[in-house]
């Protein structure tokens, strides 16, 4: 299994290379530059700055330099957050985003799987319609609507939670961002679980389990859940990646110092190294998460060989 994992990671290198290359040139092709100001800088100052950051060289040389640096694990300096390297920004921002994301995805799994399973077992009951209705709503409402709505209700109207801010990461400041992050995932996982559990519960091997005189609890927990959760396992790869890399919208609205915010600011300011660094970091993260999902999938489904 270890050799499989290593081989998988190895085979991702060309993909990574292409992503980096495309991102690099797309960044440079975007209009504007990192040091464009409303007021023109004197030409000699601008030339100095460009020189300092190696931006005066022809683009293919810049590219080669950049590739050499990232091979050493150095993503370069930020143009905007002076005194910070991109590595610094990722190291301070990512843990914050990841913590919120992991809370959110855990909540989503627990509530989503439970609600989806019960809805499937009580198909077409009031509970089923309720869960599916709420889930539809949860998926349909975008987070830039949900976030201010929650802030309004819990922060302003009920005033039991802070409207925004980070408060040094105190628990109560994390609640609303986590909920906003979790809601669509809860909804999606609930729908996914319900659909696949309904299918499994109608399958032949469940009928066999019943014909063996097993109790309904064993039929559901031991026989149905494992297969019923497979689609959720597959979904968790991309979902976890999306959620732990920080939602730009949520981090901006709630003022969370996560990695998502650096990414937007980086893009807006043409802070090339920051954008590139975050893109590469995301890419690696997704590759690793997909690998984990495949390994877990192999554990869930014996028919799939992870070799």
């Amino acid at each position: 299994m270890l050799s499989y994992a290593l081989r998988r990671l190895g085979s991702a290198i060309p993909t990574l290379f292409i992503i980096i290359t495309v991102a690099f040139f797309m960044m440079r092709l975007a209009p504007g530059g990192p040091f464009d100001r409303e007021k023109q800088l004197p030409p000699e100052i601008e030339a100095n700055i460009l020189k300092a950051y190696n931006l005066d060289k022809p683009i293919h040389l810049q590219y080669l330099d950049y590739m050499k640096n990232i091979l050493r694990g150095d993503f370069g300096p930020s143009y905007k957050y002076l005194d910070f390297t991109v590595n610094d920004l990722i190291l301070t921002g990512f843990p914050v985003s990841m913590r919120l994301g992991l809370y959110a995805i855990t909540i989503a799994i627990v509530i989503g799987v439970t609600a989806g399973t019960i809805a499937a077992l009580k198909q077409n009951s009031l509970f089923d319609y309720l869960v599916m209705g709420v889930a539809m709503t949860g998926i349909a409402i975008p987070n830039f609507v949900m976030a201010p709505l929650l802030a309004l209700v819990f922060g302003v109207y009920l005033s039991i939670l802070p409207v925004a801010g980070w408060g040094g990461g105190a628990f109560k400041y994390q609640i609303l961002p986590v909920i906003t992050l979790a809601l669509p995932q809860v909804a999606y996982i609930a729908r996914l679980t319900r659909g696949s559990m309904v299918e499994i519960m109608n399958s032949n091997f469940i009928r066999t389990a019943r014909a063996k005189g097993l109790s309904e609890k064993i039929v559901v927990v031991r026989h149905a859940l494992r297969g019923g959760l497979l689609p959720v396992v597959s979904y968790l790869g991309p979902a976890t990646a999306a959620v732990i890399t920080g939602s730009v919208v949520i981090e901006s609205i709630f003022d969370v110092p996560g990695i998502g915010r650096y990414f937007v600011n980086g893009a807006l300011n043409r802070d090339y190294p920051v954008v590139m660094g975050v893109v590469i970091f995301y890419a690696i993260l997704i590759i690793v998460l997909n690998l984990i999902v495949d390994l877990v999938y192999g554990f869930f489904d014996p028919r799939v060989k992870v070799e």
């Binding site: 091997f205 009928r207 066999t208 494992r226 014996p302």
Partner: peptide, 11 residues
């Protein structure tokens, strides 16, 4: 049952 391919639990 009729279909032994699907009547046993594959997991």
């Amino acid at each position: 049952f009729q279909d032994p391919m699907t009547s046993l639990n594959p997991f």
